[in-house]
Design a binder for these strands. Structure first.
Length: 462
RNA sequence: GUGGAUGUAGCUCAGCAGGUUAGAGCAUCAGAUUGUGGUUCUGAGGGUCGUGGGUUCGAGUCCCAUCUUCCACCCCA
């Protein structure tokens, strides 16, 4: 049999215990915060019906959806003409009924519609699961990655947007990542497109302006013209692109410019309300209005949210926005939702690069009990279970190896305490408790060990 | 989907005018030290040089293809 070199698909990764520990640290902080804000968890399957996903993410998005081949004699169901013509596009739709989920928002919309009679609105849910995209891997870009979504559906109130920004602020503060939250509003963008006379080209306009800080004003203008805008339209757009100043000033100026566009004015009202809420309850991170922010899938209709790390160049690490009619596609119109999504894998990369993971995350066992032999082991066992009863993670070295080896094991596994139980200790009842970080060793009886460890553990936790 | 770089031991890399048995550091394992780790010393194991073809007397080294990873574009967490 030919030897097969083990490997995993492009853009996917294995996770070691250490990596899981670090990732869980991120998940825990996000989950705690979601819980604190009263969100409830759900999960949905890794695969959805292809038709549920198609057409929700734009043309590019459709291309990036991983499709799942039907089982059995799937080719017999394919249209022979398309097959012979080599039309992969058409054939794949005929032989794939399922696909891996591309994000968590669309499956959530599907969930809401499907379970609408069990749900009490407004519904606050969160969801932490992997998603898949058939993208070409790059820095901070994977084909399988975790999203951590929180959405409020069934409420138009801008208080929801406000709370989501507060969550973002709190999560990144706890993680120790310095970030800037950028906000914009699709209605303002629509108003701008309307104002320059190209309401139908809003997608082209937004994707072009989105690149402003990346390729510069001139290139953006070029691209706008390439995408079919007239010179006068591009000229009319300039004051908007170059808008400077405080949030209030920007909005006032826009209000003047967009006075003929009811949609634009609505967007400005919304942003004003949101920023007023944010002013009354200050955030630790910077929150700014960025009119060039056009990101977001094409189902966004109101607020657009994006978060960038200030110290690491990696693209956005959290994004979100309001979608007014995502559930309408599945037969439940008139329900508005707003949500955010933390990109756990990018957050991981940022934390790794900036050395932000606390030391303690890699500690699994808090205590190792040294094993010297049969008698010592049975004595140590009692201590072992006593510690576990007290909620202290610990392990007993399973065989009577050399002490050096056992100490090395504790060292390599970053176990902060070692308890040594030999003949002497068994006779006196005083056990040797060694702090592996300081090297200091204290003799104490079994009764005091638990409180000693708890105390020291808290101290070292910082 | 487009363009560019990369691939030698578990990891980081050396080796190249094509020429015997492919090297180093770190890591691993064992010993020095049969009750004390993170330092030191000694030794050992570990590679079909990403994969498949081709050129050549001879290829880790040159050519082609393919895959991986990385970088940029597109797009995005």
């Amino acid at each position: 049999m030919a030897k097969e070199k083990p490997s995993i698909p492009k853009g996917t990764r294995d996770f070691s215990p250490e990596e899981i520990a670090k990732r869980n640290y991120i998940f825990d902080i996000i989950r705690e915060t979601y819980n604190l804000y009263g969100f409830k968890p759900i999960e949905t399957p890794a695969m959805e019906n292809l038709s549920t996903l198609m057409g929700k993410y734009g043309e590019e998005g459709d291309r990036l959806i991983f499709r799942i081949l039907n089982s059995g004699d799937f080719l017999s169901k394919a249209n022979k003409t398309d097959l012979n013509a080599g039309d992969s596009q058409k054939v794949s739709a005929q032989i794939c009924e399922k696909a891996l989920r591309y994000d968590l928002t669309v499956p959530f919309a599907r969930y809401v519609v499907q379970h609408q009679n069990e749900i009490t609105f407004p519904f606050r849910r969160y969801q932490i699961q992997p998603v898949w995209r058939a993208d070409r891997p790059q820095k901070g870009r994977y084909r399988e990655f975790f999203q951590c979504d929180a959405d409020v559906i069934g409420s138009d109130s801008l208080f929801n947007e406000f709370e989501l920004v507060k969550i973002i602020d709190q999560v990144f503060d706890k993680l120790g990542i310095s970030v800037t939250v950028k906000l914009n509003n699709r209605k303002i963008l629509a108003g701008i497109a309307d104002y320059i006379g190209f309401a139908d080209k809003i997608t082209d306009i937004t994707t072009a302006i989105d690149k402003l800080d990346k390729i510069g004003l001139e290139k953006v203008n070029e691209e706008l013209k390439d995408r079919g805008l007239t010179d006068t339209a591009v000229d009319a757009l300039q004051p908007v692109l170059l808008l400077q100043g405080e949030v209030k000033e920007k909005l006032a100026s826009l209000r003047n410019t967009l006075q003929t566009s009811p949609t634009g004015l609505k967007g400005i009202d919304e942003m004003e309300e949101l920023f007023t809420l944010l002013e009354d309850s200050s955030t630790k991170c910077k929150v700014e209005l960025d009119l060039t922010l056009a990101r977001g899938l094409n189902y966004y209709t109101g607020a657009i949210i994006e978060v960038k790390a200030n110290d690491v160049a990696i693209g956005s690490i959290c994004g979100g926005g309001r979608y007014d009619d995502l559930t309408g596609i599945f037969g439940l119109p008139g329900v508005s939702g707003v949500g955010i999504s933390f990109g756990a894998d990018r957050i991981y990369d940022v934390m790794q690069e900036s050395g932000l993971f606390p030391e303690g995350v890699l500690t699994f066992s808090k205590v190792l009990l040294v094993n010297f032999g049969k008698e010592e082991q049975s004595y140590a066992q009692k201590i072992l279970f006593k510690l576990r009863d007290a909620g202290i993670s610990c392990e007993l070295y399973p065989e009577a190896s050399k002490m050096k080896k056992q100490m090395q094991y504790a060292d390599k596994n970053l176990i902060p305490f070692v308890i040594i139980i030999g003949k002497n200790e068994m006779e006196t009842g005083k056990l040797a408790v060694k702090n592996m970080k300081t090297g200091e060793q204290v003799m104490m009886d079994a009764e005091t060990i638990v409180s000693y460890l708890n105390q020291n553990h808290k101290l070292s936790r910082n």
